[in-house]
Structure formats: C-alpha cells, structure tokens
C-alpha cells in the first residue's frame, strides 16, 4: 500500500469524488503554487468506496465558492502544527463569477468584451446554476 505523509501546516481536501481531484486541482489554481501539493486518486473510503484527496503543504487562501460549486460534500481540513484545527462549512454559493464560462453560443457573453461570466444558483436541491444573462444551465 502506498502512503503519503501527513502535513504539519496546510490544507487537506477530503471526500472528493473519485476521478475529480485533478479537475479541482486545476479549478483552484493549485498548479500555480510553488509549495508541495499531493493529489491522491482512488483512495479507499468507507463512505464513498473510492475518493480523491488533495494535500497542500502551505497555509493558503482557498476560494471556498469554487469548492462549494464543485461539490459541497468535499471536506476542507485546516491543519496547524499537525492538528486539524477547523473544518469550514462548505455550501453551494448563491452566485459564482468567472469560475465557469457560459457554453450557450447564443449568449451575450460570447461577444461582449470583458463581461464577467456570472451564474446564480436556481435549484439548490439539484445544484442547478444558470447564466444570469441567458439563463442557460451551467454544464
């Protein structure tokens, strides 16, 4: 069995759906960090069967809206001096800006310069986000 060592000060993102760890890694811009980052895929999970985990060996400001949009079931563990100090509650954000782009070819965002891509949560139960301009569902 492969082991990845614990971190002393940093962040652990746990309970990521198996196979989505790299997508979240990119969405959070972790590829731009200079610190050690470990992406563990297909780890065993009692609850999920398989899961992905991301370990960041530094205290950084994470955009929790991105995580909430990605999957509100992800657990964020803030580690200080080797101890898990807090788990911020992850909620699907009401509004996201420039996290995803509208895919509707008829949307004004395809032509209007410097227009932010904004989506709002229209159905919390089914996690449906819609473009505020053309109301297309986020894909």
């Amino acid at each position: 069995m492969m082991t990845v060592s614990s971190i002393e000060n940093g962040i652990v993102l746990d309970h990521i759906a198996a196979g989505r760890g790299m997508d979240l890694y990119k969405a959070l811009g972790l590829d731009e960090l200079s610190c050690l980052v470990a992406v563990i895929t297909n780890a065993y999970s009692k609850k999920m069967g398989r899961k992905d985990i991301i370990k960041i060996d530094a205290e950084i400001d994470l955009n929790l809206d991105i995580i909430g949009y990605f999957d509100p079931n992800i657990t964020v563990n803030i580690i200080k001096d080797g101890v898990n100090t807090k788990k911020p509650k992850i909620e699907p954000p009401e509004r996201i800006e420039n996290i995803i782009r509208c895919k509707n070819p008829r949307c004004i965002t395809t032509v209007e310069q410097e227009l932010p891509h904004v989506f709002k949560l229209t159905d919390r139960e089914n996690m449906v986000y819609r473009c505020i301009y053309c109301e297309s569902k986020a894909k």
Partner: peptide
C-alpha cells in the same frame, strides 16, 4: 444575443425595454 438587454440595463442611465433577445 441572449442576455444583451440585461447587460444594457446594467450599464444604462435610462430605462431599457427588452424588445426580444434571441
């Protein structure tokens, strides 16, 4: 383009009526 009148309403100083957007 869908949503163009909404963009207009966010920037305009006078009332905007959407007369059809796509």
């Amino acid at each position: 383009k869908e949503g163009a009148p909404m963009v207009a309403s966010m920037k305009s100083d006078i009332p905007i009526i959407n007369a059809g957007d796509g």
